[in-house]
Write a protein that binds this DNA or RNA. Structure first.
Lengths: 178, 178
DNA sequence: ACAGACTCTGTCCGATCGGTCAGTTACGTT
DNA sequence: AACGTAACTGACCGATCGGACAGAGTCTGT
């Protein structure tokens, strides 16, 4: 018998990925787990806390990747970042899927600064601190190019994951600025 | 003085793009327009109807693009689709931004079959009716490759749009299948 | 047997959601 | 001035949301 917390996280992960954070209610999770809604709030202080916990390992790894990029130049940093992100993605398949699937929710959800700021810092580390959005987009486009190149010849499930990952990167910067 | 319907659509478009469909309440739109919430529902039968109307022209164009692809082979169809999608994107910047920003909402929102089915058909036309998700992903990956190639040498704002568009394509297929 | 901690739930709460409706205002026509 | 219609609104509705809380059930050490 697995622990209750783990079951909740597993159900929440699946439901968040399928319907988004906003589109998943506590009752949905409770029904999926097979317990009461109140039980969720016994194990986790809030709905946000469930999401936070799902993202925690991803956030830590993003920070670790970012740390490695500091001394590198642009192109090299991009390649290193791709390698790191792919490794991260393969290690935390489900969490990363949520991370990317749920970017819309996250962006409307500033209460999760750990992952958000980590991603932000990663972008800065990759393309520099140039304030212009254009520069950052160009940097990400280059990254995505490398990313797509690396993706060839990989088994399909990994490729799907890479698509998701690429999408997340694009998503972060494609967002309208107004 | 512009018409009330146009003002509502404009506000809704901006807010949907910024916060998503789910993240935007009727009261939010009403406040932005400067009228009452009830007034929105006088001009539109429902919140969904506002979204539907925003998507209507995009849906029609997607169908038109799809129609052109039928007699073409894979590679040629992909190039044609990219051209069509870019043209579409540039013509309906705002609507397309919403389309792409809001894909998460749409996928949890089967009440908008016109756009959804049009996109679906477009995918089928591009990569064939192969039932395997892998095949479709591979097709889209190829499309994205062409897409990124085409995107070089374009002014930045257009490029941002292309990033958004690419993201939407990736998004559609990257979605987990469970 | 008892106490205390842990786990879980039924029930309630205030807030907010999309949507309805009766009624008021504004305005062109006669 | 009187009327009809379109535009608009305040008040309200049922449903659902995240969350609070007291209490019941279960387990373990003494």
């Amino acid at each position: 018998m697995t622990s209750m917390r783990a079951e909740i996280l597993e159900s929440a992960a699946r439901l968040f990925a399928a319907h988004g954070f906003r589109g998943t209610s506590l009752q949905d999770i409770a029904s999926d787990v097979g317990c009461s809604k109140a039980s969720l709030l016994y194990h986790f202080t809030s709905k946000d806390a469930i999401l936070s916990e799902l993202f925690a390992p991803v956030g830590r790894d993003l920070e670790a990747i970012q740390g490695k990029l500091a001394p590198l130049d642009g192109e090299q940093a991009a390649r290193e970042a791709v390698a790191g992100l792919v490794e991260l993605a393969l290690r935390f398949r489900r969490q990363v899927k949520i991370l990317l699937v749920d970017v819309d929710d996250l962006l409307c959800h500033p209460e999760l600064p750990d992952v958000d700021s980590a991603t932000e810092s990663l972008v800065d580390a990759l393309v520099g601190r140039a304030p212009e959005q254009e520069c950052r987009v160009a940097g990400w486009m280059a990254l995505v190019g490398i990313f797509l190149t690396c993706a060839r010849g990989v088994d399909v499930s990994d490729e799907v994951l890479r698509v998701e990952l690429t999408r997340g990167a694009l998503r972060t910067l494609g967002r309208p600025t107004d």
